[in-house]
Design a protein around this nucleic acid. Structure first.
Length: 104
DNA sequence: ATAGTGACTATAG
DNA sequence: GCTATAGCCACTA
């Protein structure tokens, strides 16, 4: 596994409960300027193996990109279980986006 | 090497 | 705010 991938996994592991981060945000924090798809790819290939809070990673619009039949419904359920509220299929990023520099 | 694909995203209309 | 388009990058055939 390459270095950027490890950074990505660490970052995802660092997302607090009840918070979300976008694919692009994780990529940028890991040092990848245009690595959103890479983040998604990594999750698709190794979310199961790494005991990761994969459900806290959503798209830049605040919605779930994962297909409903492939775990998308589970993702929403897991987030709602943490207190994240969905409105018209999206979450309010202003409210739930993970800001590492600020407190939890 | 080339082309197709996807858990993305920024931009334009 | 929604749809269409064009970049993007790793992976696969």
């Amino acid at each position: 596994m390459r270095e950027p991938s490890r950074r990505i996994l660490e970052l995802i592991r660092a997302i607090p409960r009840g918070r979300v981060a976008s694919y692009g945000q994780i990529a940028a924090m890991a040092g990848l300027a245009n690595g959103a798809r890479q983040v998604a790819r990594l999750l698709a290939s190794s979310s199961r193996a790494h005991r990761l809070p994969w459900h806290r990673v959503i798209n830049a619009s605040g919605g779930i990109s994962l297909a409903p039949g492939s775990g998308g419904e589970l993702q929403r359920t897991l987030l709602e279980r943490e207190g994240v509220v969905f409105l018209r299929g999206r979450v309010n990023l202003r409210r739930y986006a993970w800001r590492p520099t600020l407190a939890g």
